[in-house]
Design a binder for these strands. Sequence first.
DNA 1: GGCAATTGCTTCAGGTCTCAACGAATGTCT
DNA 2: AGACATTCGTTGAGACCTGAAGCAATTGCC
Lengths: 161, 161
Amino acid sequence: MDLELVASDAQEGKKQELKLWLRLLATTKLMSQEIRRRLRREFGATLPQFDLLAQLYREKDGLRLGELSSRTMVTNGNVTGLVERLEADGTIIRERLPDDKRVTVARLSEKGRTYFEGMAEAHERWIKEMMAEVEPAVLKRLLSELGQVKESAQRHLSEED
Amino acid sequence: MDLELVASDAQEGKKQELKLWLRLLATTKLMSQEIRRRLRREFGATLPQFDLLAQLYREKDGLRLGELSSRTMVTNGNVTGLVERLEADGTIIRERLPDDKRVTVARLSEKGRTYFEGMAEAHERWIKEMMAEVEPAVLKRLLSELGQVKESAQRHLSEED
DNA sequence: GGCAATTGCTTCAGGTCTCAACGAATGTCT
DNA sequence: AGACATTCGTTGAGACCTGAAGCAATTGCC
């Protein structure tokens, strides 16, 4: 048995979490930069906008801004601006509820729906392309193991709300 | 054998990449939001600043802004602003090279070095804490499998530079 | 040497992001 | 009913981020 290997294993084993975190960050950054670039080039959209539209796409009746905020993990203040811009170019429609005049509901316009469908199709193609060299079995395992990481992180947030 | 399960496997197998991508995004976002929050609360720093300082910490002689930019995956224009702010509060020092007056080198100040060491220690603790419920073997496998994803993505960027 | 291409950083416009504070509408409690 | 608290969205300051354009220093080619 190689002592040096044992030693380095012991050393590096200690920082396993940190390494994984850095790789997680790097991988996500790399991919999202590429996706951003393509969304911009081919559709004049941004990733947060795409994300928001994706949520609205699966809810025909629209969503309250608060719901949108928590589903996209985007702060309230930020949702306001996003929705404003998307409404300005006719992709979505915003209206107040008569019952409760505090809440605003956003939903896709007809134009927005077709617009999004085009983007979604391309988006899925890009993702597949980028992960083309990863075996299906690996993808599947990654999905489940990443789930564990997410669960663990979720349970260790400060001041759970 | 359960036909329904086969059917759903066939269905969902098609979107495996997309699902993984979404989970990757969600996990990273969740964790980085938490790290941001804590860095801000306890050190008055931001994640990109921490990232930049980490690069400088391991290079005593400092780095050119271009190097910093590529190592942190942050655009040039953005590095300028980051470095300006960090220089303003005395964390880093910026100086032009006499040989080539185009290049600027940034390095940690003494104050910055101690400051960063405190942050790094806390940062590593937080990460470990968040991943506490994930088994070491899983961490190790994730590291290698995520590496595959990163490699694959890297080879499928548009207009490779 | 002289001039074009390249390199390295800065600047700018527009979008995203967080946190904190605000204002209006609704709920709750006495 | 009246006072207080909560919920929902907006606003504002400051930082980050991208892509593109700008400018200065350096290199390379003739």
